[in-house]
Design a protein around this nucleic acid. Sequence first.
RNA 1: GCCGCCCUAGCUCAGCUGGUAGAGCAACGCACUCGUAAUGCGUAGGUCGUCGGUUCAAAUCCGAUGGGCGGCUCCA
Length: 638
Amino acid sequence: MDQIRVELPDGTIKEVPAETTPLDLARSIGERLARQTVAAKVDGELVDAQLPLQRDARLELVTLGSREGLEIYRHSAAHLMAHAVKSLFGHDVQVTIGPAIEHGFYYDFYSDTHKFTPEEFDIIEQKMAELAKADLPVEREVMSREQAIDLFQRMGEQYKVELIEDLGEPTVSVYRQGDFADLCRGPHLPSTGFLKAFKLTSVAGAYWRGDEKNAMLQRIYATAFPDKKDLKKYLHKLDEAKKRDHRKLGKELDLFSFSEEAGAGLVIWHPKGAMLRTLLEDFERREHLKRGYDIVMGPQILRTELWKTSGHYENYRENMYFTEVEGQGYGIKPMNCLAHMLIYKSQIRSYRDLPLRFFELGTVHRHEKSGVLHGLLRVRGFTQDDAHILCTPEQLDGEIKNVLTFVQDVMEIFGFEYEMEISTRPEKSIGTTEDWERATTALLSALKDSGLPFEINEGDGAFYGPKIDIKLKDALDRRWQCATIQCDFTLPERFDLSYIGSDGERHRPVMVHRVILGAIERFIGVLIEHYAGNFPLWLSPVQAVVVNVTDNQAEYAEQVFNHLRSEGVRVQKDLRNEKLGFKIREAQMEKIPYMLVIGDREMEGGTVAPRHRSGKSLDPMTPADFVRFVQEESRQYH
RNA sequence: GCCGCCCUAGCUCAGCUGGUAGAGCAACGCACUCGUAAUGCGUAGGUCGUCGGUUCAAAUCCGAUGGGCGGCUCCA
C-alpha cells in the first residue's frame, strides 16, 4: 500500500499508509488524544476525523478543547436533538437547519400540528441521552443532488429539498446516524457517544431563512458541553446573570418602572433612577464641553413639512407619531437632526467657523414594533446623547478620529468591553462614489488607528452614508448597539447647507451624526447589568445612609444627615427603631455604597463609622472628613 | 408586526382535572432600645390585567384586547 507523508503543526512528519484517517493518526499518538479528536484540518480544510487521507498533507487535529472542536460538538448535538425530535414526533415535524451558536446551538423545526413546549424538554433530552448512549456511528455520505432531493423528498422533508435545490451544487453530503439522516456540510463527531452533556433551554419562533415573509418555524435553543461539569457551570452562570437583569434590579432598586396605563415602552423614572440619569447627563455635558461641542436644544415637535424636506416622511413615517393643531401637521421627533440643520442655516457659515459640533441630549419618540420592546434596552421614548458635526471634507478624517477616541475614553471610564463594526455602502444608496470612498476611508482609518479589532459589514451601511457601530453586551451576552458614528450625505444636500470657502465660493459641508452612549435609557440598562446594581460612588443615586444604633443617637444622626446633605453628599437616613443588623441588611440590599453607623461611641466622639457595602469598614471619621472622602472618591471615575 | 408562553395582595409566588382565594416579605399597630445582612406578637390588604362568551357555577374553559417574557424580523 502507498505511503503518504503527513505534516503535523509542530513540524513533525509522519509516514503512514494511504487511507489512514486523522483519528487513526491521533490514536497512534495517544489514546487520550484520540478521545479528544473530533475533526481535522487537512491543508486548512475542516474535515471529519474519520475521513481517509489520500495524499501528502498538512494535518491539524481539531480537539474538543478548541473553539472549532466545541462548535463541531454542538453542531453534532443539534443533529442529535433533531434525531430525537424526529423519532418522537416524526410524523408531525419537518427538520430545517440547526447550527452551533455562541453558547450552544439551536434547531429549527416546521410543524403545523405540533407545538413544542418546555414541558417536553425532558422527554427530548431523555431520547437524546438514549441515542447518545447507543453510540451510533455518524457516517458521511456524498451523493448527487438528484439522489439527495429524491432521498429527502421520500422522507417528506420539504425544507431540505428546498435547501438542496437552492444550493446549486452537483453533489451534497448527508450525515447519517441510525435511522436519521440530515443534509449537512459537516464535519461531525465520529459517533453519538461523544455527546455527554446537553440541555434544552427555550423554544421560540423564527422565520424560515430569517425572512418575515416566510413560514414561522419553531426553534429549540439548547446548549452542550463535552463535560457535565462545564454544563453545570454554564447553567449556574446563566442563573447568576439573570439576577443582574436590569428589569429585576430596576424594580428592586426602585429606579424606574413601566406602566400599562402610560403605554408600552415608555420609561417612568423614579427618584433614584432619575438621579442616576441626571448624573450621567451631567457627565455627558462636561465631557462634550471639554471636547469642543456646543450644547443646543430643539423642540419636541416640528412641522410635517420639515420632515418631508428631511426625507423622514418618506422613509421613516411608520415609526413616527404625528399630531395636528389648528390645521397644522406636526411630527414628534424621532431624531434630533432637524433642529441642528436649522441652527446651521440660521446664518452664513464660513470655513473658519467649521467644524461646528452641535450636541443635544435629545428626547425622541419612535413607534417601535410591539414585539421588540425590551425593558430599558428597547423603548419607544428615549434620550440620545446626539451630536451633528458639520465640517469641511478635509476635516472629516480628524473629526471621526476624535469621536472614536471619545467613545474609547468613555467606555474605559465605565469599564466596558465592546465590539466595533464598520458598515459600507449598500446597494440602495445616495451620494457620489467619491463621497462614499472618502467617508469610508475616513472611518476605516480611524478604526485602524485605534488599534482595536473590528468587523466589516459589507453593504450594511445606511442609505445615506457608511457608519461605525459599537455594541455592548448585556448580562446574557446579547448585543446592543450603543455608540454609532455615521456619515450623512443626504441632509446637507436636502437642507442645502453651505459654507463659504477660502476661495469665496459656496461649498457643501460634510456631516457626521454620532452618539456616544447612544440612548441614555439603553445605556443605563446595560450599565445596571454591567455593575449588577453596584454603581460606583460617582454614579450612585444614594451614596451613603445614616444609620443609628438606638433612638438615643437619633438627634445626632439627624445633624450628621443634614450636614452631609448640605455639603452635597447624596445621603439618606434610616433612624427607625430597628436592630442595626436589620437596617444594615436593608441598606445592603439597596446596594448603597456607604452605611454610616452611629452608636454612642460615635456620638461621643463626634464621628461616624462608615461601612462599605463590600462589608469592609473604615475607621470612624468626622462627618466633614467623610464629605472630603466622598468628594475624593467621586472625582476619579471608577 | 410574527410564533410560543405568562398576567392572582405593594413585591415574590401557591391555588390538580370549573364549586365564588392562600403563603412569605413589605405596610400598619404593640412590645423590645438593640453595634454591622432579617426581634417577637398581632392587624389590615385581592371584583385573580380588561372586556365579552360558555356554564346552575369561571382565577380555572373559549374569544377579543392591554401588558410582559423568550426568540424572529427590524433597530439607539
